[in-house]
């Protein structure tokens, strides 16, 4: 998906890489899909096929995933496509992280316009 939308202004970035990683994934009940790597705002995130972007970000301890219209940090709330707080940018489009599956090499950008 090639976008022709004008480039966004640089954003106030609020997401830091976690210092310690405690994996939240529940093991045992299911064999997850193939491991994949994607980037969130340039940071590499490891995930498994079938996971939503929101799940993978949560597992990577990235909770602040967008900026609100007034520039406040926000993250996923409902995980069912209702609240719109998980919106990220993929290929220039606003996309819901909780409704979109990860894939190898996906480039995900933080959403939000600088005030």
């Amino acid at each position: 998906m090639q976008s022709h939308l004008p480039q966004l202004a640089p954003l106030r970035r609020e997401c830091k890489l976690p210092e310690t990683k405690t994996d939240l994934r529940i093991r045992g009940k299911f064999q997850r899909g193939k491991p994949v790597e994607f980037t969130f705002d340039g940071i590499t995130v490891n995930a498994f096929e079938g996971e939503s972007i929101a799940t993978a970000l949560l597992a990577a301890d990235i909770v602040s995933t967008k900026l609100s219209v007034d520039g406040y940090p926000r993250g996923p709330v409902c995980h069912m496509g209702s609240c719109q707080e998980c919106a990220v940018r993929i290929g220039g489009r606003k996309t819901l992280a909780c409704k979109t599956k990860v894939s190898q090499g996906l480039q995900v950008e933080i959403d939000g316009l600088k005030k």
Partner: peptide, 11 residues
Amino acid sequence: TPQEWTPNTNG
């Protein structure tokens, strides 16, 4: 759960 996953029988 996602189609890409398979249940473990001992789960």
